[in-house]
Nucleic acid binder design. Structure first.
Lengths: 192, 192
DNA sequence: ATTTTTATTAGACAGATGTTCAATAACTTT
DNA sequence: AAAGTTATTGAACATCTGTCTAATAAAAAT
């Protein structure tokens, strides 16, 4: 059986209406009623598809995060110097956030629910898991991989938080330079 | 002039009512109307003090975070091995989160706004700044301290996120052990 | 103790929320 | 093209939101 065209039409109308409204007002001030009026969708119909306005917005982030995942799966020349590999990986994340800057501006806002942050977190975390699994399992047998990966993942997101707080004004080249320096200080805690 | 007693009474009633309601239902489902009915406060009065239910809840986190700040300012014996110093610092954070586990369970929830996370982030970040400022400024002159500190701060919060996701079931001793191992792998990226 | 200041109140308002219902329109299947 | 299925609609409901009045009560200042 086919996917009902009415469902597709309804959801697309709502998404389009949200995009339009986002150009003139912040997400938090957009009501379900307003969205439905603009999309010419009955308000009762809205609840058959989404629970709240965030439900509609989340769809965009899923598309955006899927784009990040695809870019990450692009092969690149792996060197023997692992630090250069992670540079290539992280550059992709920075490039991605810059590309969708308008969305990440919203996502990192104080009023946004943690769910968006966690969606990004889980995506980056899966990259981290892929690239780090092997090395450490042998080096440190008693280490809990989950804590290690969450630690490393969130460290990278810490740079994105800082980037957001500075209004994304730091250039990507500068950002990469900083990342290389930060990770090359070995552990931030061993004190050199 | 004195602080008006009526204001104190109103705000305390609302906070007490919130605590009571939190025992039986999640924060997101608590309405302003319900809170005011229980606190025996006119709904119009509510808006003279807070914008929404989060405004009332935020007061608790501020008290809790203040407790963290105080515990951090307790002096401890500083060794020459910096890794042992950070162990002592981080142990305090873990202990603090465990102490207020019920609140942090809420704060890390998907539906909670980022503001609570940022409040914790800024607090831990100020600790990081104090303990790291000196060492790195000389070692790496071109490094942007803001990015470095946000990176390190969020790495620690990554452990808390993982702890939360596992329902805080990991013991504090185990958590500390893991932290020591993670930071002793030098940089996660240098590949050993 | 009296005056002055100000926080709280009740009531009302338009609009939003979340849910339910039977009727209808739009789509899929045969 | 007709029959069967299901998404959408409009209407109604109680409740919540945010804001605003004028009246009142409670506090601070004199």
């Amino acid at each position: 059986m086919k996917q009902d065209l009415r469902i597709i039409k309804t959801q697309e109308s709502l998404r389009q209406a949200l995009l339009t409204l986002l150009k003139s007002k912040p997400l938090e001030s957009i009501t379900i009623a307003e969205l439905c009026r603009l999309a010419k969708i009955n308000r009762g119909t809205f609840y058959l598809h989404y629970r709240d306005v965030h439900g509609v917005f989340k769809h965009y982030l899923e598309v955006i995060v899927e784009d990040l995942r695809l870019s990450y799966e692009e092969p690149y020349y792996k060197t023997n110097f692992i630090i250069q590999n992670i540079e290539a990986d992280m550059i992709k994340i920075f490039h991605h956030v810059k590309k969708y800057q308008d969305f990440y501006q919203i996502i990192f806002d104080e009023k946004m629910p943690m769910m968006y942050y966690y969606l990004l977190f889980d995506t980056v975390r899966s990259f981290m898991k892929e690239s780090l699994d092997v090395k450490y399992l042998e080096a440190e047998p008693d280490i809990n991989i989950d804590y290690l990966i969450s630690y490393q993942t969130n460290a990278i997101l810490g740079i994105l938080i800082e980037w957001h707080r500075q209004g994304f004004k730091t250039s990507m080249d500068e950002l990469n330079e900083q990342l290389i320096k930060i990770v090359s200080i070995n552990s931030p805690f061993t004190g050199k």
